[in-house]
Design a protein around this nucleic acid. Structure first.
Lengths: 342, 342
DNA sequence: TTAGCCTACGCAAACGTTTGTTGTATTTTT
DNA sequence: AAAAATACAACAAACGTTTGCGTAGGCTAA
């Protein structure tokens, strides 16, 4: 009864004394196969517990129905949310998702790309490594016509498909709020220079200050490499200034956690001696005793969803063999300020 | 120059006027191919930018070098840590990981299993859905000789491979600590009955109370379905008791967050009117104003790592065609109490 | 009646790679 | 110098599936 061989189309064919092609067509409900035959095929398939071998299918069709996602770190809520966004979208289209963690190592990023290329995935989503400044390893995907869409951490070039967050909206809301609260000196703890997000934050920060007619003090703009140590130092650097800022925009919630620790160690009171705005909107502030004025939500799930949508659009295009559609899919997702104090 | 065709072994063969088999062997440094030929093949492969088509390889070898991971929810830190554990381990062995989110839906779990089966993954790791009580959908994997290893949320049966957490160690440490602090009435807010983890927590809870010679009050053992609403109700149920417990063991940190909210709404003071121990050790307590006495770390990363190790052992076994090795790989990872208050 | 047309299926090739077998030179051994 | 061993490479089959094409038999229509 329990046949220990994995059933194939050929076996079904043999059992019914018909050809494999007929079985294949019958299973796919091809119109050119008679009702009786189709029924008999399905019956035997059922009995044998036949299930299509996708591995064979992928090979035959030169299409793996699989997309790859490369993110720096699975453990970060931002990226696991993003991954969820991808997974949900892909699942709907019956696509499989394979993951790669670059762990912010360019070396790993390259290796993963190569691997996915060899895997012949139908498309790739990437959020860059902190250190990624070259683009060569992505170029090689062109030859394989594997479309690539970047999200969140995107390269600084125009000829790519991407979805990025727009920090402006959330930042302006935040700066406005700080102004309303009476703050006039607003500092910035920014990220590493090689991240596009860093430049973007700086530009928007300056733009917002200008709009609100606030003076820019370049001494109160510092940066961190995102290590705990560096985060603390950045904070201290601001505290040591002659003219201390009364509010600080912080690169993200993680950096802010370290800043708060630093502040407390200095016997300063958050939201009294100094106020914060940061980015990420981690689901933790509502439970904490000290929190920023607000955190700027960047909607990782939505960003990733949109990026996935783009990717499938590109995959679709490739399938329909439209050549030379030189249009780049690009999208900006507006950020939003989430207030934590009244 | 830029050939837009994807290079294959055949092309290399044609270009050199040798047979594809020779090219294949040359690329794999097979000893039966002369040094000159091997070199020439590699040179041309280099020029053409040849890269093996794994899709074809997987098919040919009837082995996909891919494992599947099914977890309830990517967004939960516990599971994203676990996934990281899997990814790290698999990556080392050059395996690809495909993911499936069951979202705690049995229906999805089944669908994902079917999909991975059709995908012909080499093995599957599963952490069960809240509602999974049947085992049928896993049985079908036997026919395909796809090994399966459960972790964390494992089925209640003995004939499986699994890695589970042992709550006993951490729980005993915790109960001991509570006793040392003077608590004599320790309640339990448990999870849904269909989870093995729930039964396990209950058993161990009772065992620990017995060891410490504490009375068991069955009224102070309640359960929650893990919804926010239900968490609150479970907490209230305990607070309404004639003989309120002075300490409560909580199913996990998430439930505890809701409990704390409930406590505050009742104008009670955590760690004064009532103390908590919970499970998970989320990386958030150190930043919070109210926190449990301790949280019990279950080492998701290590659990997943071990489970992955088991899986590869099974995959290896299958490859070497050892039949009927009826030994079940099972492992218990000891939990550990992480204290937050002195 | 016969040309033409469905219906229902079989045949064979193809996707890219590996691998067992076979074949032919060249070298080594006796 | 003949026999045996070795080195190198070609041939062909195989993995499971799909699909273009061919075709036999039965039907319709003129």
């Amino acid at each position: 009864m329990e046949n220990n061989k994995i059933p194939t189309i050929k076996e079904i064919a043999k059992k019914l004394n018909i050809s494999p092609s007929t079985v294949s067509r019958a299973l796919n409900h091809h119109k050119s196969i008679g009702a009786v035959t189709t029924m008999r095929v399905h019956k035997v398939a059922q009995e044998l517990g036949y299930e299509v071998n996708k591995s064979a299918l992928f090979f035959k069709q030169q299409k793996t129905h699989t997309i790859g996602v490369i993110i720096p770190n699975l453990a970060e809520p931002f990226f696991s949310s993003a991954l969820t966004g991808v997974e949900d979208f892909a699942d709907n289209l019956n696509y499989t998702v394979i993951i790669g963690q670059s762990l912010d190592s360019l070396e790993r990023e390259k290796r993963i790309i190569d691997n996915m290329k060899n895997h012949r995935v139908d498309g790739i989503l990437v959020s860059l490594t902190k250190d990624t400044s070259t683009y060569d390893h992505f170029e090689s995907l062109k030859k394989y016509k594997i479309p690539i869409v970047f999200f969140d951490r995107v390269p600084k070039r125009k000829d790519i498909h991407y979805v990025a967050g727009n920090l402006y909206s959330g930042m302006l809301q935040s700066v406005t709020k700080l102004c309303d609260l009476g703050h006039r000196k607003i500092g910035l703890i920014n990220g590493p220079a090689n991240l596009a997000a860093t430049l973007q934050r700086l530009e928007i920060y300056l733009k917002c200050l200008r709009i609100k007619s606030l003076d820019v003090d370049y001494d109160s703009i510092v940066s961190t490499s995102l290590t705990k140590e560096d985060n603390k130092n950045a904070m201290l650097q601001l505290l040591r200034l002659e003219e201390k800022p009364t509010a600080v925009i912080v690169f993200n919630d993680y950096v802010l956690l370290d800043c708060i620790t630093t502040i407390k160690a200095e016997n300063l009171i958050v939201n009294k001696d100094i106020s914060f705005i940061s980015f990420a909107n981690l689901p933790l502030w509502e439970y904490m005793d000290t929190m920023p004025i607000a955190s700027i939500e960047q909607f990782p799930y939505e960003q990733a969803s949109k990026a996935t949508e783009f990717l499938f659009k590109l995959i679709e295009e490739r399938n329909s063999a439209k050549e030379g559609n030189a249009e780049y899919l690009q999208c900006i997702i507006d950020s939003e300020m989430i207030s934590y104090t009244s």
